[in-house]
Design a protein around this nucleic acid. Structure first.
Ligand SMILES: [Mn+2]
Ligand SMILES: [Mn+2]
Ligand SMILES: [Mn+2]
Ligand SMILES: [Mn+2]
Lengths: 217, 217
DNA sequence: ATAAATTTTTAGACAAAGCTAAAAATTAAA
DNA sequence: TTTAATTTTTAGCTTTGTCTAAAAATTTAT
C-alpha cells in the first residue's frame, strides 16, 4: 500500500467516526486539501483493491479490510505520538507532523514491540484511543466541557482540536490531561464559562469548551 | 528531498567509502539493483540541485552539500538501528530493512532527541560509525580478521557483510561485538583459520574471516 | 415540475521515477 | 591504430498521483 492510499483510508476513517454514514468525495477532498477529481481517481483504485465500498455519486465507506487497515495506521500514528512524548520528551503540540510520517513505516513486529516498550498504552497524548493489534478500541465515555452545566465538574481526558495553537493555549492556562475542571458559571449570552482549574479561576469561550473532552466526576 | 534522491546519495556515499574516486553509473546501478539509464536520469537531477559533481561519461562524486546530506541519512539509519536493538530488543540481523524506512523520516529535532535518548552512541549494532549532528565520524582503527597472523588476537568490533545469513552464522558460533578472538593457526592452502572464541575453538573459512573486523590486542 | 445551483465524474495533461532499445562515447584488444 | 567490447547516455514509453476544465448527475430552490 502506498503512502497516498494509506492517507486516504485514514481520512475516510476519521470522517466516518464523525458522521457515521457514506462519506462524500468533497468531504475527503476538503480534509486532504486536494481536488475532488483526485479523490474520485483514488476511490476507484481503493475500490478495485476492496478497501472501500464505492458507487459513483453515492459516496464511499470502508470495507472490513479497509477499516482494519485504517485502524492499523491510526494505531501506528498514536503509538508513535506516545513514544515521542513519553520517551523523547516532545511537547504534545509537536508530535502530530512527525507521527504523520512514522505512521507509514511498514513492520508489524516493529509496532508491536513499540507497543510493548510503551507498556500497551490505550490513549495517545491527546486522549485519543489507540487500537490494539487486533483493531479493538477501548471506548472511554467522555463529553465536551461545553455540555456541562453550572456546578458540574470533570477531569480533562482529551482534546477535539489538536492544533498547536489550541494545545499551547491549554499549556499556558495549565490545563492538561488529568486536570480537574469545575464549571463555576455559564454566561447564557455567549455560552462562555467561568471555570476553576486547580485553584485558579478563569474565563473561557464556548469555542474552547467545545474542544475539551471531560469525564464527569 | 525525495526518498529516491536520498537513496541515491546514500549509495554514492557508501561506494565512495570503498573506492575513494569518481563513482561510475554502472556501480550505482548494480548496488541499487536498477538500470544504468535510471541512474543517469537521477544524476542529472542531483547535479541540478548541487548535490553531486557530474560530468557525463566521467562518473560522479558528492559535493560538500551532498556529502553532508548523505551523512545525515546514514546517521539516521544507524541511530534507528541502535534504537531497535537496544530499546526494542531486535536482533542485529533484523534491523536493517526497518532502518531503511526510518532513515527517511524528516525531523532534525527527532533525530537529535533520539540520539540523546540512546546516549549518543558512536557505533551501530554492526560496529559501523554513527556521524554526529555535524557529520563528524569517530574513526576506530580496525582490520579484518583475515589479516591477522598466527598467534595474534583481537576483539571483534564490526562486520563487513551485514546480511542476515552471516549475522545468524555468527550468533550460532557465539561470536558477537566484543568477543575476543585468537588466531590459533592458519592453513596456507585455503587461508582458513582455526580460532579460539571464549574457550571454544572452531574452524572458519577465509571468507568468514574477511568479513569480520577486529581490533588487535 | 422545471430551472438553478451544487456535487461528482470524466477527459486530457503533467511531473516523477522507472523501464527497454538504440545511439554515442570510452576503454580494451588485436 | 583500427576494431571490438563495454559503458554510458538518449529517446521514447509506462505507471502513479496530481491538476484543470468540461460534462454529467444530483440536490435545492422557485
Ligand atoms: Mn496526531
Ligand atoms: Mn493524537
Ligand atoms: Mn543497516
Ligand atoms: Mn548497520
Amino acid at each position: 500500500m502506498t503512502f497516498s492510499e494509506e492517507n486516504y483510508l485514514k481520512t475516510i476513517y476519521h470522517l466516518t467516526t464523525l458522521l457515521d454514514s457514506e462519506i462524500s468525495t468533497n468531504a475527503i477532498a476538503e480534509k486532504m486539501e486536494t481536488k475532488a477529481s483526485s479523490v474520485t481517481d483514488m476511490l476507484k483504485k481503493l475500490s478495485e483493491k476492496n478497501l472501500v465500498n464505492y458507487k459513483k455519486y453515492q459516496g464511499v465507506s470502508l470495507t472490513d479490510k479497509g477499516l482494519h487497515s485504517a485502524k492499523m495506521i491510526v494505531r501506528k500514528h498514536r503509538l508513535w505520538e506516545v513514544f515521542l512524548v513519553d520517551k523523547l520528551d516532545f511537547a504534545w503540540d509537536e508530535v502530530h507532523d512527525i507521527a504523520e510520517q512514522l505512521e507509514h513505516i511498514k513492520s508489524e513486529k516493529l509496532i508491536n514491540k513499540l507497543d510493548e516498550f510503551l507498556n500497551f498504552p490505550t490513549e495517545d497524548p491527546h486522549g485519543d484511543p489507540i487500537p490494539n493489534a487486533e483493531g479493538m478500541i477501548v471506548k472511554v465515555e467522555k463529553q465536551l466541557l461545553s455540555e456541562l452545566t453550572e456546578k458540574q465538574a470533570g477531569v480533562c481526558v482529551g482534546v477535539k482540536d489538536t492544533s498547536s495553537e489550541f494545545l499551547q493555549y491549554l499549556d499556558k492556562q495549565e490545563i492538561a490531561l488529568g486536570s480537574k475542571i469545575e464549571v463555576m458559571s455559564k454566561e447564557s449570552f455567549d455560552l462562555s464559562l467561568k471555570i476553576k482549574v486547580g485553584n485558579k479561576e478563569l474565563m473561557i469561550s464556548n469555542k474552547i469548551a467545545a474542544n475539551l473532552f471531560v469525564k464527569k466526576v
